[in-house]
Amino acid sequence: MATAPVALAEWLGYAAAPLWLELLLDVVVAGIIVTVMLLTSALAGPWAKRKITAMFTDRIAINRVGPFGLGYIVADSVRLLSKELIIPDGADRPAYDVAPAVLPLSALLGFAVVPMGSGLQLADPEIGLAYVFAVSSMASVGMVVGGYASGSKYSLLGSMRSVAESIAYEIPLVVTAASVVLLAGSLRLSDIVAAQQGTLVSLGPIAIPAWYGFLNPFAMALFAVAALAEVGRNPFDLGEAGTELVGGYITEYSGVYFVLFFLGEFLHIFLSGAIVATLFLGGPLGPGPAWLGVVWFGAKIWAFFLFTQWCRSAVPRIRIDQMLQIGWKGLLVLSFANLILTAIIVGVIA
């Protein structure tokens, strides 16, 4: 599948695009992707999170400012950006300032290779999946540096927890993804999506597509749980445990820095949703014409977001030692078992 800049260059009439055009189109497409994802996060953060939480808690949430309360997005952004930047005396300045930027940056870099449908993909390297995991795990650096550099004990505890969590659940995440790579035969994300075309089985009028989520739901469940841990959502939101550590690694951040952390968290949720969608839910595949791909892709990442909010309302937070046990003893074993099983099945069938 041609990536968007290449496709645009061809459309403009250049069979082999010169460097300046390639760079220009890269920038343009990157800008479009970043804008779309930022808008999605901006919609999700102030608005959707509250609306969804209100649904679970039998309340009417924001509905005063603007139609359906959408004006809150503007109000919240203005409010957060205009807040005073309170920087503690003991903060380690360069590290303290850089850390909030790492979180959204790592997520946005990850979005570069995700095929979002309708040709919207910035680059399609051969090692796409490995690139995504490599880049998104930079977030733990941001969290631990931010927590440690804040010079506050709550932040320290939160950052230590977050980094332990990230490391513990990285392996099950990657190993489960590896089982998908075995099924698809390639690390390239567009190949993985292409391998999920077609129908798995037809049950009467309903044709179940050949998505890996239907082929191996166990792997999808494992991956979803590990993704929840990577992102830091219930039951694994210890890094930022609101009722225990005030704010975890975010405690000492305010104003713009807080917005960046907040945004970064949502972008990571959407990135995880994007990876889940690409690996297990067929990415932009869906009924209808091919140009609707973006819509289906969007629906799938929003479904993942909804799933995390649902967990937030009903699933308690577990303790750090229990979390490490589940990660190192439970999920690791299960993901390796899944990998070996998949390898056997692929070896037998193919």
Binding site: F56, D58, S313, A314
Partner: peptide, 12 residues
Amino acid sequence: TMKHALDGKTFT
């Protein structure tokens, strides 16, 4: 909780 979300009743 999903049942509460989908039944649309609010107490506020």
